[in-house]
Nucleic acid binder design. Structure first.
Lengths: 234, 234
DNA sequence: AAAGGTAAGCGTTTGTTTTACACTTGTAAA
DNA sequence: TTTACAAGTGTAAAACAAACGCTTACCTTT
């Protein structure tokens, strides 16, 4: 079916500015980090905010989110999860703007750290986050809630760690997400029983004299589990 | 802070038409039902679609969803859960329109049934759903997936049943959602152990000679559970 | 008035998962 | 070669889930 004259339909409706905002979490040693940058346009010029942009005419909101992440941080191939649409008519005093928020988790390796810093973005320890403009504080809180929920039924941890990681590292991450301590032995047992980790021959000795074996996430098995509808509750 | 001249900001950005669509599920005896209506504007005049509308200048998307549900069905005080934002530039050949979908569950009592039918909307058995316009088929599928997921960690069942209901009724509902049979005795045990049901003195004798006791959902206990972070996995 | 049929409701047994906690191992530094 | 310390293994008790047999209430049929 062809619609050569798009403009003829929906004349009575009033268009609205649409933006995307990305709440990006990273994990470093034992703390969650949040990616922020200094706003470059008025109003709120110079205020801290999460990374965002307006949605252009020929892109979906997820395309826009991918684009803006690339523009502001140089990062690519990052998985973005829709968080919520923020649409209060009064949320932005600059204009009627609705914003689709996305959230994402990334490996905090040296590369990611450096790329980001050369693009006017900055990592903050989640506990030292400055006050953000507009409703961005709420977005971050919502993203945290969603992160915790999501961590219960999806192997989210692996998105936040480097390709090779140790079990104690993985545990620290879950402890940071849930904000509570877990039993070392039970954690190991449970996570290994899922069959999602491939043990490597290498050890990481940065954490102890003995050193801890490195593991890799087995994405193939994970796909199988998802297909079979298996739960991933930690 | 005052911004008397809203128009001066964000000049470079291009506004987009924003719509809401509501995927409304009901439950009747033992089958899930879907609320649809015949579209009244071009393009796709006369096609079956879920209930929707454009978002107006001074309302949030959730306000718009509540409004449109009221306008099309006469129903009020319905809980609407955000589903997803559909933003593909090509999704509507009539214009660039993005749509925030909501989904909701309602009690299928006589009142709701009748109200709806006098407002040009119609209930379909989920299995007999006609093909829908645009991406509405996808929305319905996404809503179903979300319904199943949500049913795992939230006492969603109670939204779909009348105020007073029997345990066998509740079980039929869960069986319709999960599409599989559950053990009568274990279901009863588990659901009662949660402390979310208040037993009444009345019986409903429509289903059997013996009759089944009616129960009510205890919203207060549920709030407590949510606050304490307890899971509700069925 | 008694017998029969049927869904509602209750309890027990068995197997699995979670929790709690004690002990052993490997390695760099003293 | 001893020490310190995180990494890693094992096990018993408790809680939970799955499977399934039996009893109860009440209408219908005879």
């Amino acid at each position: 079916m062809e619609f050569p004259h798009k403009k003829q339909y929906y004349k009575q409706a009033k268009p609205i500015l649409v933006a995307v905002d990305c709440i990006i979490f990273g994990f470093n040693q034992s703390t969650l980090q949040l990616l922020l940058f200094k706003r470059k346009i008025a109003p709120f010029l110079g205020a801290w905010s999460v990374i965002g942009s307006f949605v252009q005419e020929q892109e979906s909101t997820s395309d826009a989110a991918i684009r803006v992440l690339q523009e502001h941080t140089g990062l690519e191939n990052i998985f973005l999860d829709p968080l919520a649409l923020y649409s209060d008519p009064e949320r932005d005093p600059g204009a009627r703007v609705i914003s689709q928020a996305y959230f994402s988790l990334i490996h905090l390796e040296d590369e990611a750290l450096n790329k980001v810093e050369t693009h006017q973005a900055r990592w903050f320890d989640l506990k030292d986050t400055p006050s953000l403009m507009l409703d961005h504080n709420i977005m971050v809180q919502d993203a945290l809630d969603k992160l915790r929920t999501k961590a219960r039924y999806s192997p989210i941890g692996f998105e936040l760690l480097p390709e090779k990681f140790t079990i104690p590292q993985l545990q620290l991450l879950y402890e940071a997400i849930y904000q509570k301590e877990l039993d070392r032995r039970n954690f190991r047992k449970k996570i290994l029983s899922m069959g999602l980790l491939d043990k490597l021959d290498e050890k990481d000795k940065s954490g102890s004299r003995k050193g801890a074996f490195l593991y890799q996430f087995n994405a193939e098995n994970y796909q199988k589990m998802v297909k079979e509808g298996v739960d991933f509750i930690l």
